[in-house]
Amino acid sequence: MALLEVKNLSISFGGLKAVDGFHIDIEKGQLYGLIGPNGAGKTTVFNLLTGVYKPNAGSIVLDGKNITGRSNIQINQDGVARTFQNIRLFKDMSVLDNVKAGLHNHYRYSAVEGIFRLPRYFKVEREMDQEALRLLDVFGLADECDFKASNLPYGKQRKLEIARALATQPKLLLLDEPAAGMNPNETAELMDTIRFVRDTFDMTILLIEHDMKLVSGICEKLTVLNFGQVLKEGPTSDVLHDPEVVKAYLGE
């Protein structure tokens, strides 16, 4: 059984079908790419998968559980986490606290325990500090745990955003144009980071990306979206060399 099974997913805005009959199957541990021209509906698909939008039709099944139409918070708790094309860190908070923000799905204390600083509050905070530092160490950011997130270089901010997403303990990680704004050296390092995340955390990853070097370098399978519909799907090399894809997306 696929970890993610999406069938006939559709949504319209003002009579315009932004996504029409979208389907995808992603196996556990797979590194999968979703590509297509600007305006093809890729980010809309991500918003449907994460509960930002509710579909007009279709189904989303994650690890055997139907999560169609659930809220953004519920879907995150079900096991879907994402990053964004434009980095959305809590820039005035510390690097450590950014990761801790992602841990609250799994580490909890009551409002009373927090307000009155009862023993459980300190116990849970210590556990979150330890887990956040463990994640930061994995990404080489532990020494900068007290820095403001806004003071990190761009590439490290990307790593921090991924670390925060992983703190929610997802089954599926969605990366929205992770290489946006990066130079070639940063992109090469990002490719290593994504492979590392998949292998170290036994993670299933779906990414949107325009950088074809990154896509061809790390994605095992691709789905191409065009005008809200699936144009092609299959092994990466086959898809990227398909004449319809070349015509619609690569412009050659």
Rank of each mutant, 00 (worst) to 15 (best):
A2M: 12
L3W: 06
L9P: 08
S10V: 08
G14L: 01
A18H: 03
A18E: 02
D25W: 03
I26A: 11
I26K: 02
K28D: 10
Q30R: 08
G33V: 04
G36M: 06
P37E: 03
P37K: 04
G39F: 06
G39A: 05
G41H: 02
K42I: 07
F46N: 05
V52N: 10
V52A: 12
K54G: 08
K54C: 03
N56L: 09
A57E: 14
A57H: 10
S59V: 13
I60Q: 09
V61T: 03
L62W: 04
L62T: 05
N66G: 02
G69P: 10
R70G: 07
S71G: 15
N72H: 13
R82W: 06
T83Q: 09
L96G: 06
V99K: 12
K100E: 12
E113S: 13
E113Y: 02
L118Q: 09
P119T: 03
V124L: 14
E131Q: 12
F139W: 14
D143K: 15
D143V: 11
E144W: 14
G155W: 00
L160A: 02
E161H: 09
A163W: 03
L166S: 08
L166T: 09
A167Q: 08
A167I: 08
T168V: 11
Q169R: 11
L172I: 00
L172N: 02
N183I: 09
P184E: 08
N185H: 06
N185K: 10
E189H: 03
E189P: 00
E189N: 09
D192Y: 03
T193L: 14
T193H: 01
I194T: 05
F196T: 01
F201Q: 06
D202A: 12
L207K: 03
I208Y: 03
H210F: 02
L214N: 05
I218Y: 01
G228T: 10
L231Y: 08
E233V: 00
T236M: 07
S237L: 04
S237Q: 09
L240D: 06
H241N: 15
E244Y: 00
V245D: 05
V246H: 02
Y249C: 08
